[in-house]
Design a binder for these strands. Structure first.
Lengths: 116, 116
DNA sequence: ATTTACTACTATGCAACACATAATACCTGT
DNA sequence: ACAGGTATTATGTGTTGCATAGTAGTAAAT
C-alpha cells in the first residue's frame, strides 16, 4: 500500500538534490557543525532534519567534497566542524548553475501555463 | 558499490517533485497525450523521458488528479489524452505555492552565501 | 553519586521516485 | 508478410528524504 501523492510528500521530493546544494552553500560561508547548518537552513525557510543532514554530510565527506575537524565543546560532546574542499567548491558552482537553469525552466513554464 | 555524488545525478534528484508540478502545469493549458507533454517540457528545457512520464501519469490518474480519454490517431496507435480533474487543479495550485516558497528560500540562501 | 536533561552524532530500515531497459500493441507503406 | 514509426505498459535498480532508535558526552538537580 504505497502510492500517495500529496503536497506534503511532494515537498520532500522537491527538496531532493536541493538540500545538497543548500548545505554546500551554507558551508561556503565557512566551517560549521551540523546543528549550526540546520539552524541556518531553518532561518532560510529550508527545512532539514538530523536524519537527513547527517547521512548527507557523510556522503559528501566520503566523496571528498567536505572535510571536518573535531572540536571540543563547552556544552556537550565534541563537534565535527565541516568545511568545503576545493572539489566541494567546484561542485557547489556546478550545482548553482544546475539550480538556476532548472528554476528558470520551471518559472517560465508556470508563467506560460498559468491557469486563472 | 553505490554512493556517487555528481552533478548529473543531482540534476535527476532536483527534478523529483518538480516534474509532477511541470506535468500538471502543462495540462493546465488543456488536455494532451504523453508525447505532446514531453515535447512541451523539452521546449521549456525541462528534461523528461517516457520511462518517467508514463508512471507519473498513472500515479496521478490513480490518485484522481487526472482523467483521460482514448482518441484514434491517423498515424499510429490510439492516444490517451489526459486532463486535470478539479482535484488536479487544486493540487497544481498547492504545488505552485510549494515551488515558489522553496525557490525563494534557495535563491535567498545562494545569494547570501555567494562565494567569490 | 545517581538521575535527568540537553546536545551531538551514529545506525538501520522504509518508501518514493527518476530512469534504464525491454516488451507489447497498433498503424501505415512497401 | 514485413519493416519502421508511434504509443503504451511492465519490471528492476539506485539514490535519497525521513522516521526511528540508539550511543555517548556534559552539566545541573536531587
Amino acid at each position: 500500500m504505497t502510492q500517495t501523492i500529496n503536497t506534503e510528500n511532494t515537498q520532500s521530493q522537491m527538496r531532493k538534490g536541493v538540500l545538497e546544494l543548500c548545505t554546500l552553500s551554507v558551508l561556503a560561508m565557512g566551517e560549521a557543525y551540523p546543528t549550526e547548518i540546520i539552524d541556518q537552513l531553518k532561518g532560510s525557510k529550508m527545512m532539514i532534519v538530523e536524519g537527513t543532514l547527517y547521512p548527507l554530510l557523510t556522503r559528501l565527506k566520503n566523496a571528498n567534497y567536505l572535510t571536518y575537524r573535531w572540536e571540543e565543546s563547552t556544552s556537550g560532546p565534541p563537534r565535527k566542524y565541516y568545511k568545503l574542499t576545493p572539489q566541494g567548491v567546484k561542485l557547489l558552482t556546478e550545482l548553482e548553475n544546475t539550480w538556476d537553469e532548472m528554476a528558470d525552466a520551471v518559472n517560465k513554464l508556470l508563467k506560460e501555463n498559468k491557469h486563472k
